[in-house]
Design a protein around this nucleic acid. Structure first.
Lengths: 350, 350
DNA sequence: TTGTAGGCGTTATCAG
DNA sequence: CTGATAACGCCTACAA
């Protein structure tokens, strides 16, 4: 079968030129081309130029598959995100990207969009592509495929979740402490009846943040029923709105004077619907969110929130991943960052 | 050199088993394993099970590089995003993802983060990986590498930008019309002095949206200086805040009564700082954004915005890409969607 | 169904 | 620097 490399300089839509086409065109040996590509120093400047010119003329594009087939492992990382439309995760992704770039690795983002099935598909593909490593915020940290993947030799770091077992590195934030901070802040402001807005129960964060909230209430000497449960089906803006309607609908005598939301999306939805229904924030209802996404600060009533070091999370996770990928006596590590309360107008004392 | 496949069922951390290991373990021929993988119907149910079990036991993971080396083209798409932290683009990405999934293709997201350099790196890598095709919202639609990539045989569709030349398919929204809609709405409400908030100039959208705004003003019989330029350095929330401070600082006699922002991020920042500085929205300043991201509707003063069909953009772009990748007599197409004004409280007549 | 052979494009090695 | 050659792991085809 005919190959490429004929038709003069008038760059025809050639069907992919290979190293040997380049060699032929430059009038050098195949090995030399390879050297230009991989050890440019071993080749005289003049021949190198000739080769490079030939590459340009032919529109040579390295075939990564072939390269990889020999090399064994690619130089890309992947982050399998739980929800690409949640700014929290895109900020984490940005932290990862920066760290990856420094290590001269490319990052591919994959969006599982909360689907365990899609998550599995991505994990499998990434494995098949022999990526250097995978960062993931899993739908379920106990997903067995995660262990499978490491067993087959692809490092995996879990981001923003923790696992009891230490088969992976993980990087997360102390959610229990975060819950504490939120409630302590509200109690300091004099609130004695506080809604906890979040769900579903299966999300570990929701449980932990509530746990911290309960502990803080107890420490403050308030009864357990000072925390009013307002359940959501998901941690989304629209569920937040929904919860807001329920809260606004309560008789003002029993209505909580403050709400602690399991994340900022919920808090923003809540804020919107409460304001829309005539509640004043923070006077009638103080609101605390969680994550401190950029839109929390940018709300028309800027939102008090528990800040997670989003970029840091990504950066540290990447460091752990790279260590696992390159350091033969790597030890798994569970990093826990400390959250921080950022007070804004949504809880301002009036 | 010794290979794998010994040590009993107790899944040791084997160093990657290949098809022939599987064949040996299952006691079948290599060809049969390959058939199980690629044409399961050609193999009896019983042998197939045996093979599948062997795969499971050995933790066999297909080597995509080898597969690809033969196949020529992978079954993944990539979307090179301009800014992964802008919800507009993540919504577009979601549309792409859905369409890709239907076609049984995986999608990798790459974030150029407005850097032409990073964009180039990604494009090159994707080409090297022989992806089926690339969707991209480019930093600069005239980037020559884009043409290079198509010439080498990788289909490219441009998303949310247009190019004069028709060397690619593209999908975008009529920004000039969008600008018109925004201004017509404000003029209908009686505004006669309107700020246009956006920049930098090099962004095509900014120019087009302003152009539409100017045209609408002219049609309404208002003088050109009814549109007050408020420049930003970027289309971000913080630049929006900045612009807000400048507007709020104007003497109320000459201050515009309304602002049309080049996107929602700017609008949200503007909204926040104006409210913070004591301006009432919409009474003292009406605000219109562009994109209609979810957070626009969720603002405490819900934002009027020019909606782009974000998911549709992604979906249509993917369809074009697939056509280009598979249909031999594909014709490039420039799709232009029609935007739509969504009126909310930030322009409500008081 | 079985074996086996050849090739995908790149890299590495080794003697000249 | 050349030229030749052997991997890398998988897929297809072909003859049994």
């Amino acid at each position: 079968m005919a190959r490429v490399g004929d038709e003069g300089g008038t760059a025809g839509p050639a069907r992919s030129a290979g190293v040997k086409d380049v060699a032929a065109r430059a009038g050098v040996s195949l090995g030399t081309v390879s050297n230009v590509l991989n050890r440019p120093d071993r080749v005289s400047a003049r021949t190198r130029e000739r080769v490079e010119q030939a590459m340009a003329e032919l529109g040579f594009v390295r075939n990564e598959s072939a390269r990889l087939l020999r090399a064994g492992r690619s130089s890309t990382l992947a982050y399998v995100m739980l929800d690409a439309t949640n700014p929290f995760f895109t900020d984490v992704a940005q932290g990862i990207e920066r760290a990856a770039e420094q290590a001269d690795l490319s990052l591919f983002l994959c969006n599982s969009d909360q689907s365990a099935e899609r998550e599995r598909v991505y994990l499998t593909r990434l494995q098949e592509q022999r990526v250097q490593g995978v960062l993931i915020t899993p739908v379920d940290p106990d997903e067995p495929l995660l262990d499978e993947v490491v067993r087959q030799g692809t490092p995996v770091v879990i981001v923003d979740r923790v696992r009891d077992v230490d088969s992976h590195c993980s990087v997360a934030v102390d959610d229990v402490l975060g819950g504490r901070l939120a409630i302590e802040h509200l109690v300091d402001l004099g609130h004695q009846r506080i809604a906890f807005v979040g769900g579903p129960e299966r999300i570990g964060q929701v449980r932990d943040r509530r746990r911290g909230a309960q502990a803080a209430l107890a420490d403050a000497g308030l009864p357990a029923d000072a925390l009013v449960e307002v359940r959501t089906e998901a941690l989304t803006v629209s569920e937040g709105r929904n919860a807001g309607e329920r809260i606004a609908g309560m008789p003002s005598a029993t209505r909580p004077t403050a709400a602690f939301c399991a994340n900022d999306l919920v808090a923003l939805g809540l804020l919107q619907s409460c304001v829309g229904l005539g509640l004043r924030v923070p006077d009638d209802l103080a609101i605390v969110g969680f994550d401190d996404i950029e839109f929390a600060a940018a709300a028309a009533v800027p939102l008090t929130s528990v800040r997670q070091p989003r970029g840091q999370l990504g950066r540290r996770a990447t460091e752990l991943l790279l260590d696992e990928a390159t350091n033969p006596d790597h030890r798994h590590e569970q990093v826990l960052f400390t959250p921080e309360l950022v007070a804004r107008a949504s809880t301002r004392r009036s």
